[in-house]
C-alpha cells in the first residue's frame, strides 16, 4: 500500500524546480568545462540533459497546474523532443571529407569520417557523382570569393544531369549534403605502366592545398603495386593569385614537375616519361582537385520544427502572461 505513496514522493522530488536549476547549472558548468578542455567529449552533456528530461517528464506527469498552462507545456514538450532528436542525431549522423580531381567520380569512399553507431553507411557507398570542374575568383588580397563547382549526378537510379554547387548550395543526394570547400589545389596526373605488361593505371597526386601551402607544393606517393616512394613537386614562376588585382584559381600556363627517388631527379613537362625498373611513368598534365565536406543528419528539419514550436509556444506563454498588465502601468 505504501508503494503508490513512495512513487508519488519520488515523482515530486524528481519534478522539483530546484532540481531543474541544479541540472541547468550543471549543464552550463559542463559546457564551460568541455569548451576549456579539448580532451573531454561533448557526450558528457548527455548527463545533465538526461536529468533535465527526467525532471521535466516528472513535472508533466505530477504537476497539474503545469499541465494546465498549455503554451508552457508545449514549450517544454518541444524541448523534450529536441533532446530526443539530438540523441537520435548523435546515433545516426555522419560527417566526413573527400577530395576529387577534375573529371573524377565519387565512388563512396571518404578520406576522413565520423559517424554515429547506427549510420547506414551503405547508402553513401552507393552514391555516384562526378566533379566536372570548378571556378573560384579571388579579389585583391588575395581574398577568396564564392566557389562554383560543376557536378554531374550519376546515380544510383538517377538520370545523369549537371548542376552547379556553391559555398551555400550543397549537392544533396539521399540526404547527404556535399559542400565544396576552400581546400583545393593542383593535381598532377600520371600514367603508370608496370614492367612486364601489367594493366596500365592512371592516377593523380593531390598536392597540398593552394594557396594555403603556396610554397610547399610537393608530396610523396607510391605507384600501385610497388614499394617506390616518389617525391613530386610542382614548379612554376607565374603569379596565379595576384595580391593587387582580381584573379582566378587555375593551373599555371607553364610549369614543370620535379620527381625524386632517392638521389635520382627528373624534371617533366606534360608528355614527359621516366623509365624505372618497376615500370614507366608518364606525366599527363596538371588539373585541379576540390575538397568536399559531407554531412548527413536526418533530424535537421525536425530539429528546426521543434525549435520553432518551442519558441512560438514560449512567446505565446509570455504574451498571455504580460498582456494583462500594460508596460506603462
Amino acid at each position: 500500500m505504501q508503494q503508490p505513496e513512495q512513487l508519488t514522493s519520488l515523482l515530486e522530488s524528481l519534478a522539483s524546480l530546484k532540481l531543474t536549476l541544479v541540472a541547468l547549472v550543471l549543464f552550463a558548468a559542463l559546457v564551460v568545462l568541455i569548451y576549456v578542455r579539448d580532451d573531454l567529449p561533448s557526450a558528457l552533456l548527455a548527463a545533465p540533459l538526461g536529468l533535465l528530461s527526467a525532471n521535466l517528464l516528472a513535472a508533466i506527469l505530477g504537476n497539474r497546474s503545469f499541465r494546465r498552462q498549455a503554451a508552457l507545456l508545449v514549450f517544454h514538450l518541444a524541448l523534450l523532443t529536441l533532446v530526443l532528436l539530438l540523441a537520435a542525431s548523435r546515433l545516426s549522423y555522419l560527417k566526413g571529407s573527400l577530395e576529387l580531381t577534375e573529371g573524377e567520380e565519387f565512388t563512396g569512399t571518404l578520406l576522413e569520417s565520423d559517424a554515429g553507431p547506427f549510420h547506414p553507411i551503405d547508402t553513401l557507398r552507393a552514391l555516384r557523382f562526378g566533379n566536372l570542374g570548378f571556378r573560384i575568383d579571388y579579389a585583391p588580397g588575395p581574398l577568396r570569393q564564392g566557389i562554383r563547382n560543376q557536378i554531374e549526378i550519376r546515380g544510383p537510379g538517377a538520370v545523369p544531369h549537371r548542376i552547379e554547387i556553391t559555398d551555400q548550395k550543397p549537392l544533396i543526394l539521399s540526404g547527404y549534403r556535399f559542400y565544396p570547400t576552400g581546400n583545393k589545389g593542383f593535381a598532377p596526373s600520371f600514367n603508370w605502366q608496370p614492367t612486364g605488361g601489367g594493366e596500365a593505371r592512371i592516377g593523380t597526386v593531390h598536392l597540398p592545398s593552394y594557396p594555403l601551402h603556396e610554397h610547399g607544393q610537393a608530396r610523396e606517393w607510391t605507384p600501385p603495386g610497388t614499394a617506390l616512394r616518389i617525391w613530386t613537386m610542382l614548379e612554376f614562376k607565374e603569379t596565379i593569385l595576384a595580391p593587387d588585382r582580381w584573379s582566378e584559381f587555375r593551373p599555371p600556363k607553364e610549369h614543370r614537375i620535379v620527381l625524386r627517388i632517392g638521389a635520382q631527379r627528373w624534371e617533366l613537362v606534360p608528355g614527359g616519361i621516366v623509365d624505372l625498373p618497376e615500370g614507366r611513368l608518364e606525366y599527363r598534365g596538371l588539373r585541379g582537385w576540390m575538397g568536399y565536406t559531407v554531412f548527413y543528419d536526418w533530424t535537421i528539419p525536425w530539429l528546426l520544427a521543434a525549435c520553432l514550436v518551442a519558441i512560438g509556444a514560449l512567446g505565446a506563454h509570455f504574451w498571455s502572461k504580460f498582456a494583462n498588465k500594460p508596460w506603462n502601468a
Binding site: I34, Y35, V294
Partner: peptide
Amino acid sequence: AQDAWGRYWAW
C-alpha cells in the same frame, strides 16, 4: 552555419 560550413553546430 549549416548553409555556410556544412554543420549546424560545432561548439
